[in-house]
Design a protein around this nucleic acid. Structure first.
Lengths: 342, 342
DNA sequence: CTGAAAGCGCTTACAG
DNA sequence: CTGAAAGCGCTTACAG
């Protein structure tokens, strides 16, 4: 029950277990790793000894010998000069699903948040800390992506979520489908002058893909696609606010809005309200991301969301695929109906 | 530039670097680990060789020899039967700050999401995968906390955020101060009949502490503290909604509300709106957590928030403190002014 | 300032 | 089915 025999002076090793069970170290190893060639009786004896001694196999020594790390590294890129508190919740969801996917594949997840150049590091595979690395996070930190782009040239086993460059192993949402879904839903509500808001030249490549999906869907619906509305702003929320102000000033009419991301849509909702433009009655609004914040906005935000579980799994599998086959991986998206479209 | 010399058949080791630099393995080790006793010239030679070969020291082998892991494990407890998508964003923020704190202390972070009994695991220290483990996440998963409580009895180096039990090394917000802050702010807006909403017998011990802070502050302000309002509901959001309905039915008057957490407050805001009760004009509302969702609610939610950076740091330091001194660690809180109080 | 040797705690051919 | 021995890739006393 308690340790009044003798205090553990030294960490208990497989040799201690072997001694206690009256077998060799090899047998302990085999018994505890589930080898087939061990008698049930022996295995039980070993397991008992291990439990009595509070023994757990030293994962690092085992891995060193086996040559596998059994872990996958996940790096989350943040905006320079901002802490993890400023991370877009979208990436937290993605991080969570990626960890879960890693676990499902039998891997541990080593995660790091990187924002400043001094802390950029991606050589986890070379350092034998991981068998693969997945990189997610804001596309706005150029220095970080430059760094990781170089990393990817040097090492195998890297997978990126929505990288700002195409020449590496990336995983993305099916953004064209997202555009289609949004336009279709807006059109169904009766909207005809639907505009896409977001910078199609953004380092976030996925924005452009969403715009293309919008454009094609508009044409297919017999509607007139217009040029994307691009606005400035410190962050995505103010970009959304400013876009509305800009459109109001220009006097261009619109009755449906598809935003490149939820944060912009959320800012827009505020601005629309303060301008007295009713959502969804005068204008329907759809975002992209599926942020939790959209559940409580006024009105709750209808949005397109990727399948996070699939995203995490694809990221992990891609990182582990050792780069020989480089399939373009697209993650399914679906519409989350809330109340910003009639 | 490219590898047309010969493809790397085998992983490059410190022996390869030694050979190339014309020194011994010991020297390579010393040069690369920043030992003082090495000539600058030698060091440069070694570094050059390492770079040319694309060598990185094998972290696992080094750690095995050194006896340190250099990593801290972070486990995030989820609700059974729900994936990481259902994790309260509060814990994501806390996870992010904990990872950042670990990095600041020179540690890697090994994170896992655990919700089902089959996946409970906390013996990272025994398995030599980490030097300490911090556990955060929902207090509602009893089986998980039972498991980790037992873990904590067996191993040193564990730190818990807001554990449902007191007999272990926990870190918590300064919840009484939170209660004081909320009451003071509400009173300043002119509220007199202020009520606390939240289950004071909840497994989330911090709820009770917030209530106690509320109660004491009410007395000090010469106001009458009332019994906490407790409501049922699937999740915290519906508990918030139901609390409002309950209070409306009972006819008890109130002009200030302090919720045990933001999710409840957010649900309450919706219900208040649908009942036509104006916030903040008829009733002031304050939550706890600092969720991002509160920025976009109608109206934006005034809330009390812990200092996440401090929380992460305290968690890491506590886990690493090897348990000999068990200081009760309280994390500072502050009021985030938004628009749900006059 | 540098090298040769031992050892961190495992696993896995190789024998028997 | 089990054991003795070698080795995974480092670091660190111990010498010189």
């Amino acid at each position: 029950m308690n340790n009044n025999d003798k205090p553990p002076l030294r960490r208990v090793t497989s040799i201690d277990v072997a001694e206690r069970a009256g077998v060799s170290q090899s047998t302990v190893s085999r018994a505890l790793s589930g080898s087939e060639t061990i008698t049930e009786a022996t295995r039980r004896r070993v397991e008992l000894a291990a439990e009595q001694l509070g023994y757990h196999v030293n994962a690092r020594a085992a891995g060193l010998r086996r040559g596998e790390t059994g872990t996958i590294a996940i790096v989350v890129i943040g905006r320079e000069g901002q802490g993890p508190a400023a991370i877009n919740p979208f990436y937290y969801s993605l991080l969570g699903s990626t960890c879960a996917a890693a676990a499902e594949r039998g891997y541990e997840a080593l995660v790091s948040f990187q924002a400043r150049p001094e802390e950029f590091f991606g050589h986890y595979v070379a350092r034998r800390q991981a068998d693969g690395v997945v990189v997610i996070g804001t596309a706005t930190n150029e220095a970080a992506w430059d760094y990781f782009r170089t990393c990817a040239e040097q090492s195998k086993g890297m997978a990126f979520w929505g990288s700002p460059f195409d020449d590496s192993v990336w995983v993305r949402s099916d953004n064209r489908e997202a555009g289609r879904l949004a336009v279709e839903r807006l059109a169904r509500s009766g909207a005809e002058r639907i505009v896409f808001v977001g910078d199609t030249a953004s380092s976030q490549r996925q924005f452009r893909e969403r715009y293309e999906g919008y454009r094609d869907a508009m044409e297919q619906a017999g509607l007139l696609p217009v040029e994307p509305v691009i606005s400035d702003g410190e962050d995505r929320v103010s970009q959304g606010r400013n876009a509305i102000r800009q459109m109001a000033d220009s006097g261009a009419g619109f009755d449906g809005l598809f935003f490149a991301c939820d944060a912009m849509a959320l800012g827009a909702l505020e601005e629309l309200a303060s301008l007295g433009i009713a959502v969804p009655d005068q204008v329907g609004v759809i975002g992209f991301d599926g942020l939790g914040s959209g559940e409580f906005s006024a009105p709750p935000l209808t949005t397109v969301q990727p399948d996070f579980a699939q995203a995490g799994m694809t990221l992990v599998d891609t990182a582990l695929a050792s780069g020989e086959d480089r399939p373009e991986r697209r993650v399914k998206v679906h519409l989350v109906e809330r109340a910003s479209v009639r």
